Amino acid sequence: MPRVEMYTTPICPFCVRAKQLLAQKGVAFEEHNVMLDPAMRGQMMERAGGARTVPQIFINGQHVGGCDELYALDAKSGLDPLLAGEPA
């Protein structure tokens, strides 16, 4: 089972889209709401190489990026292997 972490805010449409794709794939994920938590946002930025926007998605500790990157990875058939534990 992959470990998927997603830093989000409740008002972000890109977060909703990313969650929808993961749900379609039957993948559970751990969600970190950064909206009112500056420490959590700082952790996200540190892990994501300074990225400030949400979502920021990590699969098995590997930074995937945001919603667009997640969908691009899926479009080039790279998401399923990553979710299966294979390196990208």
Rank of each mutant, 00 (worst) to 15 (best):
M1R: 08
V4M: 03
V4E: 00
E5Y: 08
E5L: 14
M6A: 10
P10F: 13
P13E: 01
P13H: 09
R17N: 03
A18L: 04
K19V: 03
K19E: 06
K19R: 15
K19S: 08
K19Q: 11
L21S: 02
L21Y: 02
L21H: 02
A23Y: 00
A23F: 02
Q24T: 04
Q24W: 02
K25G: 01
G26W: 14
V27I: 15
A28C: 08
A28S: 13
A28Y: 03
F29M: 11
E31D: 12
H32F: 15
N33P: 09
M35A: 15
D37F: 07
A39V: 14
M40W: 08
M40D: 10
M40L: 15
R41Q: 13
R41V: 03
R47M: 13
R47A: 15
G49C: 12
G49I: 11
A51V: 15
R52T: 13
R52H: 13
R52K: 13
T53Q: 14
T53W: 12
V54H: 07
V54K: 06
V54I: 15
P55F: 03
P55S: 09
P55N: 04
I57Y: 01
I57C: 06
I57L: 11
I59S: 00
N60M: 05
Q62D: 07
Q62N: 08
H63F: 08
H63D: 04
V64F: 04
V64G: 02
V64C: 04
G66V: 10
G66R: 07
C67E: 05
D68Y: 04
D68V: 14
D68K: 06
D68Q: 13
E69F: 05
E69P: 02
L70F: 02
L70Y: 03
Y71H: 06
Y71S: 04
Y71T: 05
L73S: 01
L73Y: 01
L73E: 01
D74K: 00
A75T: 01
K76G: 05
K76M: 11
S77H: 12
S77W: 07
G78E: 10
G78S: 08
L79K: 00
D80A: 13
D80F: 03
D80P: 05
P81V: 05
L82C: 06
L83P: 00
G85I: 04
E86G: 08
